[in-house]
Design a protein around this nucleic acid. Structure first.
Length: 213
DNA sequence: TGTACGATCCGCT
DNA sequence: GCGGATCGTACAA
């Protein structure tokens, strides 16, 4: 992993990192081609104090071991029948991470449709969906970003016109941590989980366009 | 738009 | 056993 990625994933608080990941591209290199997608929705998980996090109270298990590794380590775990993708942030020993909750397809759309047997926003508008669309194997767990088949662009490809901040999805009965505003998504982007169709910006998908800069 | 249910692995009781 | 950072299908309203 190069030092620029390490700096990007350590030099600010994890909520800020989660927010700033919107508009960055993920690439998955496969033997038969590259799949590329823009990050549209993220959630921050803040380690030991965070009652909604797997690393709450520094509780370490075989499953969540990757969280204690350095920034840029890939943390993949299974929930029910699905895999979920997280990027570890902060230095080794600080078990914080960002959950990638949704992405917008950029390249390899046909492959994603084959992987998912779905079309449209349903392709990647959820954490389990995007993993299936990209076809990321669970074996990436514990491996470093950008030294494996999965890489993250250090520079953003698009800039959100507006970012919405809400509480995290699926964190129930965790007191203040249930309410904590740690979920971020691109307003108007169709590839975001649990949004109503009426709020979708069909023209620009919520990204800034050149004429607006 | 909503509720119900099953898929199916890991960690806890 | 049971529930979880989820999702697709079935069915109701």
């Amino acid at each position: 992993m190069n030092s620029a990625i390490t700096a990007f994933l350590t030099d600010r608080p994890t909520p800020t990192i989660a927010r700033s990941l919107l508009g960055h591209q993920l690439h998955f290199q496969t033997p038969t081609g590259k799949l590329t997608a823009l990050i549209t929705e993220t959630e921050a998980y803040l380690g030991a104090p965070d009652a909604g996090a797997h690393a709450y109270q520094n509780h370490q298990t075989p499953r969540n071991r990757a969280l204690w590794q350095p920034a840029g380590t890939i943390y993949i775990y299974q929930l029910r029948a699905w895999l979920l993708l997280n990027l570890v942030t902060q230095s080794a020993g600080t078990p914080e991470c960002v959950l990638i909750r949704a992405v917008e397809p950029v390249a390899g759309l046909k492959r994603m449709q084959q992987n998912r047997a779905q079309t449209g926003a349903n392709l990647t508008n959820g954490p389990g969906k995007l993993m299936q669309a990209l076809g990321l194997p669970r074996e990436l767990n514990g491996h470093p970003l950008n030294e494996s088949a999965l890489s993250l662009d250090i520079q953003p490809s698009r800039q959100p016109a507006q970012i919405v901040t809400t509480s995290r999805i699926g964190i129930v009965n965790k007191g203040a941590w249930t309410q904590a505003a740690l979920r971020y998504y691109v307003a108007g982007n169709p590839y975001v989980s649990k949004i109503s169709r009426r709020t979708v910006d069909h023209q620009h998908h919520g990204w800034l366009v050149a004429s607006e800069r």
